[in-house]
């Protein structure tokens, strides 16, 4: 297998207490169809579980989905945990219902992209590809 067609690895998960996973599962499938190796962690995971998994799986990107409204502190914890383990080069993206006012705060924290409901599949694929281009 030559280096250019080695699939990139992405972890998709959900932190926080709400139990919806449609968005995360949907994104998992479109990324897989676009040629990524996607590690799906399921719902209601702690930031510690997400970060440890991402590191063991050596993913290039973590995508976290939210509905609960607790996205700011949870993302913050993920960012801190990544830093503490020399893993802050892993790209972070978010998805779900996130109020527009919080977008700037998320970006300032180091979240590279936020996908809100209704964004087209093609748009997600293109943005992910652009972020993962080295």
């Amino acid at each position: 297998m030559s280096e250019e067609n080695i699939p990139k690895r992405i972890l998709i998960g959900k932190v926080g207490l709400d139990g919806h996973h449609r968005g995360a599962k949907y994104v998992t499938n479109i990324l897989r169809a676009a040629g990524y190796e996607v590690i799906y962690t399921g719902i209601r995971k702690s930031p510690e579980q997400i970060v440890a998994s991402a590191i063991q799986e050596d993913v290039a990107m973590i995508g976290l989905s939210f509905l609960s409204g607790a996205h700011l502190p949870l993302f913050h914890q993920v960012v801190d945990l990544l830093k503490a383990q020399d893993a802050d080069d892993i790209i972070l993206v978010g998805g779900g219902v996130i109020p527009p006012d919080d977008l700037a705060a998320l970006k300032a924290m180091g979240v590279a992209e936020v996908f809100t409901p209704g964004v087209a599949d093609q748009n997600i694929i293109e943005k992910v590809a652009a972020l993962l281009k080295d």
């Binding site: 699939p7 897989r32 169809a33 676009a34 190796e37 996607v38 399921g42």
Partner: peptide, 11 residues
């Protein structure tokens, strides 16, 4: 087809 994969054992 895509070369991608859903790695679902970890869940």
């Amino acid at each position: 087809f895509s070369g991608g994969a859903l790695l679902g054992d970890r869940v």
